[in-house]
Computed example of a mutant assay.
Amino acid sequence: MTREAARGRAFRGLAGPAPGGRPRLFCVPYAGGGENAFDSWTPLVAGHFDVHVARLPGRGGRFGEPFPESLRALVRDLAAEMAPHLGEEAILFGHSMGATIALELARELRYAHGARLGRLVVSGRPAPGTRRRRLHELDDEELAAVMRALGGTHPEVLGQPELWEVLAPILRGDLRLIETHEVAEGPPLDCPVAAYGAVHDPDTTPPLLEGWARVGTGPFSTRIFPGGHFYFRTHPEALATELLTRFAPRPS
């Protein structure tokens, strides 16, 4: 593959069968997140899942690429690359912004490509239809304050204007993408759905997570982890243990 082709790949290293026959775990990051967004916990499950994190345009190896015109356009591109590599045990995990992308991606895979996921796991986001603050309309100072409160941006970035100047447009572009997208009712998914939240995340209380049951007809479950919105950074073992215990294949 040429360097130019590799730059545009939506998932790093996604080619051919999964090594060792492991089920694939596809992860979609939160607003502003890159392909290292889940480095706190994915190494803990890599021996049991073939892990691939989405490489979104406008950052990392795709820094020079323009942002998608819409979330729908982004989903179509992700699905086109994923569809040939799905198996019945594949898991799709999305956190925060990535949860909504993962839902639309699961629908696109199922109803445009005829590819069925093993399960959908949504994290750090209330169910579709919940009214939320439009963060992309905040000024830079207000946006930085929100990021500081959420704990998703390293204090060093927020404290250095030159670093914040790089991140802020990426973050704002992602937020605009997700906050201007309307999740339609759509046909229900037929794969199991799990919704995860955290004790100190007011957007993921049990009642707000329960609404995710409406997106599918299969088994539904929820789990509340210790920590805040980025619970998997402070308690990576908790998330890794959950995924391994519930979803990793059992030795024959």
Rank of each mutant, 00 (worst) to 15 (best):
M1K: 08
T2F: 06
E4T: 14
E4S: 15
A6W: 12
R7A: 14
G8M: 11
G8Y: 11
R9P: 10
R12Y: 13
L14R: 04
L14I: 14
A15C: 14
A15P: 15
G20K: 08
G20S: 11
G20Y: 07
G20D: 11
R22Q: 05
P23A: 15
L25D: 05
C27H: 03
V28S: 01
P29G: 07
Y30R: 03
A31L: 05
G32M: 02
G32W: 05
G33D: 05
D39S: 15
T42G: 14
T42D: 08
L44E: 04
F49L: 06
D50T: 08
V51P: 00
H52W: 09
A54P: 12
R62N: 09
F63D: 12
G64Y: 08
P68K: 05
P68A: 15
P68R: 09
E69L: 14
E69G: 15
E69C: 14
S70W: 04
S70F: 01
L74M: 09
L74D: 05
D77C: 06
L78W: 07
M82V: 03
P84L: 09
H85F: 14
H85T: 08
E89Q: 11
E89D: 14
E89Y: 03
L92M: 09
S96Y: 01
S96T: 00
M97I: 03
G98L: 00
T100E: 10
I101P: 02
A102Y: 01
L103W: 02
E104K: 06
L105H: 11
L105M: 13
Y111D: 13
Y111I: 06
A115F: 05
A115I: 04
G118W: 04
L120F: 08
L120Q: 04
V121I: 15
S123E: 01
A127T: 01
P128L: 04
T130L: 00
T130H: 08
R131E: 15
R131S: 15
R133G: 10
E141I: 12
E142A: 15
A144L: 14
M147D: 11
M147A: 15
M147P: 05
R148V: 00
A149W: 00
T153A: 12
T153H: 08
P155G: 08
V157D: 07
V157Y: 02
L158I: 04
L158H: 05
Q160N: 13
Q160R: 11
E162D: 14
E162K: 01
P169L: 02
L171S: 08
R172Q: 12
R172Y: 02
L177K: 05
L177E: 00
L177R: 02
V183R: 01
G186R: 03
P188G: 10
L189D: 11
V193C: 06
G197R: 01
V199Y: 09
D203P: 11
T204E: 09
T204C: 12
P206E: 12
P206F: 04
G211S: 02
A213C: 10
R214E: 15
V215E: 02
F220K: 10
F220C: 12
F220L: 07
S221V: 12
S221M: 09
G227C: 02
H229P: 06
F230I: 01
A238Y: 07
L239R: 00
L239W: 00
A240C: 06
L243W: 01
F247C: 00
P249N: 04
R250H: 09
P251V: 04
S252M: 07
